[in-house]
Write a protein that binds this DNA or RNA. Structure first.
Length: 490
RNA sequence: CGGGAUGUAGCGCAGCCCGGUAGCGCGCUUCGUUCGGGACGAAGAGGCCGCUGGUUCGAACCCAGUCAUCCCGACCA
């Protein structure tokens, strides 16, 4: 069985780290809090990126690129925004090094910048400073831009993919003529994220609105998709913000309407990051390795030959290569693992570690009988199939796996979706494996904060399809109109 | 940023208490035999012991600082 992976039940956090490292997704780097995304991990990210990018283009967005550095003065224009990010910014103060006295290298004190540059923690400010020049008339709207970029947030505590100092993401920044249109855009992109999570990542998510306390700094409303990990903790997988006219006012971005009146434009921003990689790992994987949804798996099928004597190698190579070609022609991402350095058993374990959805094993017995052993990663189910007309069966199986791991994750979430009607019940549920807890809340930030202090649980969101239901706040007993979703979160 | 732990070959570790110039397993290289769930044998290569400074005739070992990682808090996507 898999070696060097801590079982989930023993230490979930360690299991996650072991998996990320052993499966070759990422590595620690020489820089605190910053990770190296390794080729296999990056290949998954590329698939995430390409799929999302296609969805953004379909919904009318164009990519652009804005600078990594933001003048400090830009940052201070939107007050709430500064407050939100001030404590986690990296700042560039100098632009030159020189040789030090002791033979080392030091910062040249002569080369101090007149105005310091902030390494972007997010790009609203520099983008809105630019939009001022791009937008004059209603004819320039809507402006639908996305950028794929790295950002830096100086976090106290980091974890591979889930929270790193530097991370990769996409940030959409749009400008609209009306509030309604901007809200619609915010919701539309939330739908895109929802669909992406379900269809590509096999990840069931809950769409909702953040409370004031959890809202993005500078936003009027923050929408989110929240998902549940196997340890019962919630993880925010994506956000979409309705920014109102906050940034337009801060950067004086106005347009002339059809009626000739000048008005501030309405804004949205939305993003998902490499954190999705963490969600992907934690949602589906097991003690033997990753379990990847076929649509995101860099390798969907691996063919492993089982030799017996040197003559069989030639025959198996030919048969394997033929199958590889057949599957590749059918659009399957396939690898023929004919490397003679390892035996089949090793390759089996390795393919499980890497989360390859389907493993095909081909031995002499199969050559004689025209069969092939097919093993799916998600259920471990072994099947003996006929080699003839294999591709359509494999494609069908890949689709079944995609659906199955979604269903499995959905079942898990449903099993861990609780309702609490009293404080005792609320605490008991949190102590018994967590999950989402739907409970009444009096709507105040004070109560929200108190609950967090006492239980570490936060309000993940107010679900979009939330029914109106009168009740009483689980903490204060004050009247409440609806339940909200609590959970301990990443 | 506080509390705790760790850092010795690519990986996992022993050696440190009691200072005398480094070892085990896996992996790697070569050759051979193997091959239906992490093969076996033989021969090799690989380390200024995280880094910097101090104590000492002599430091992986003792002391100080520093950097990094992990766990627990405060902060957050």
């Amino acid at each position: 069985m898999a070696k060097e992976i801590t079982p989930r039940t023993q230490d979930y956090a360690q299991w996650y780290n072991d998996l990320v490292l052993r499966a070759g997704l990422a590595d620690y780097s020489a820089v605190r809090g910053c990770m190296i995304i390794k080729p296999y991990g990056f290949a998954i990210w590329e698939r995430i990126r390409d799929a999302l990018d296609g969805m953004f283009k379909e919904t009318g967005h164009s990519n652009a690129y804005f600078p990594l550095f933001i003048p400090k003065s830009f940052f201070s224009r939107e007050a709430t925004h500064v407050d939100g990010f001030a404590k986690e910014c990296a700042i560039v103060t100098h632009y030159r090094l020189r040789n030090g006295k002791d033979g080392g290298i030091e910062v040249d004190p002569e080369a101090r910048l007149d105005e310091e540059l902030i390494v972007r923690p997010t790009s609203e400010t520099i983008i809105w400073n630019t939009y001022r020049d791009w937008i004059q008339s209603y004819r320039d709207l809507p402006l639908l831009i996305n950028q794929w970029a790295n950002v830096v947030r100086w976090e106290m505590r980091t974890r591979l993919f889930l929270r790193t100092t530097e991370f990769l993401w996409q940030e959409g920044h749009t400008a609209h003529a009306t509030a309604e249109e901007a809200v619609e855009e915010t919701r539309k992109m939330l739908e895109v994220y929802d669909r992406f999570a379900r269809e590509w990542m096999s990840l069931p998510v809950i769409k909702g609105v953040k409370t004031e306390k959890e809202r993005f700094a500078g936003a009027i409303d923050t929408y989110c998709i929240e998902t549940l990990m196997q340890d019962g903790k919630a993880l925010q997988a994506g956000t979409s913000h309705f920014l109102g006219q906050n940034f337009a006012k801060a950067f004086d971005v106005q347009f002339t309407g059809v009626d000739g009146e000048r008005e501030f434009v309405w804004a949205t921003s939305w993003g998902v990051s490499t954190r999705l990689m963490g969600a992907l790992v934690m949602a589906h994987s097991d003690d033997d390795g990753l379990v990847l949804p076929p649509r995101l798996a860099p390798i969907q099928v691996t063919i492993i030959p089982i030799y017996k004597g040197s003559e069989s190698q030639t025959a198996l190579r030919e048969a394997g290569a033929r199958l590889e070609q057949e599957l590749r022609s059918a659009g399957v991402r396939v690898q023929f693992d004919h490397d003679d350095n390892h035996r089949a058993g090793y390759k089996f374990a390795e393919s499980e570690l890497k989360g390859i959805p389907i493993r095909l094993a081909l031995g002499m017995r199969d050559l004689e009988q025209g069969t092939i052993e097919v093993v799916r990663r998600d259920t471990r189910e072994k099947m003996l199939m006929q080699q003839a007309d294999l591709a359509p069966k494999i494609i069908h199986l890949l689709e079944a796996i995609q659906v199955n791991i979604y269903q499995k994750a959905l079942d898990f979430r449903n099993e861990n979706m609780h309702r609490a009607d009293s404080w005792e019940e609320f605490e008991r549920l949190l102590d018994r494996g967590g999950g989402f807890i739907s409970a009444h809340w009096d709507g105040t930030s004070e109560t929200e904060e108190l609950i967090k202090e006492r239980t570490k649980a936060t309000i993940r969101c107010i679900p979009l399809d939330n029914p109106v239901e009168s009740g009483h706040c689980i903490l204060t007993g004050a009247p409440s109109r609806q339940r909200v979703l609590f959970a301990r979160a990443y």
